[in-house]
Design a protein around this nucleic acid. Structure first.
Lengths: 136, 136
DNA sequence: TCTTGACCTGGACTCTGTCCATCGTAGGAT
DNA sequence: ATCCTACGATGGACAGAGTCCAGGTCAAGA
């Protein structure tokens, strides 16, 4: 049983077979699937599941803070179940593979007050880009 | 005359009225227009300009390194003519306005070797998020 | 077991971006 | 100044990603 599904159930989420397979597909580390990929994998176990349901379910998981939305390539958004440990992303420019990474220090602290233009800054997303070992 | 257009001409770019208006629309600081916005503003001066030409022209400017592509919201890409000074972006979560900002230090140095997974890391993009003074 | 409101479905629709056949023109050649 | 031609522009079809909706289905409490 996935931790993700347990946490969602604990929040009073109504558990259906569709939501179950979506949560199960999203279980694991360094998982960064697009909605269509989630749909394809979910459909292996539950062939009738619709695209709309996958989109709705992913959207709800994001709203509940249990899944992070990541867009590293300007194309389809990706969904990252590792939402409870702050992290950033490292992307291979050649093959597109994504790793979760943990920079040292607090990236927010790098933005001086004079560079904040009166904003109340609360969040920072960092995407490192390079070439992975397999593609080098 | 925009500096951007001058630089492009200097690279042997064929200057047409369409490319001229696109370059002029993109002139200035803190400019982050979508392709459709560029098209709309260009069409004020050159009503017959087509969407395809705007997309092609923006793509060429990006390839030449004279304009940066920015995607801060997972929707339309935005085009930033401030490509010659390294910078990051600060986005208002409420109204979506974008400012160019300059963090202190080198963000690349914050990623320890043990967190690089064998990648050759060459680039880093940082998006700060918060609420701007007008929206607070 | 029954009931009901929340959930799921498939298809139409929107938005963003790309492709392509055809037409037009910038700028070098004469 | 005019001609040529390869490069650029056009607009309409197409594709990928995501949203919306009317109607059918079902999880879970009574």
């Amino acid at each position: 049983m996935s931790d993700l599904l347990e946490r969602l159930r604990g929040r009073g989420w109504r558990v259906t077979s569709q939501r179950r397979v979506v949560a199960e597909v999203l279980d694991g580390d360094h998982v960064h699937l697009t909605a269509e990929e989630v749909h394809a994998r979910a459909a292996e176990r539950l062939p009738e599941i619709s695209r709309a349901t996958v989109y709705n379910t992913l959207g709800e998981m994001v709203s509940l803070g249990e899944v992070m939305e990541v867009s590293t390539d300007g194309r389809a958004k990706r969904y990252d179940p590792n939402a409870h440990q702050p992290h950033q992303h490292l992307v291979c420019s050649a093959c597109g593979i994504i790793r979760d990474v943990h920079p040292s220090g607090d990236p927010l602290a790098d933005l001086p007050p004079a560079e904040r233009f009166g904003f109340t800054v609360s969040q920072v997303e960092v995407t490192y880009r390079g070439v992975c070992a397999s593609c080098a």
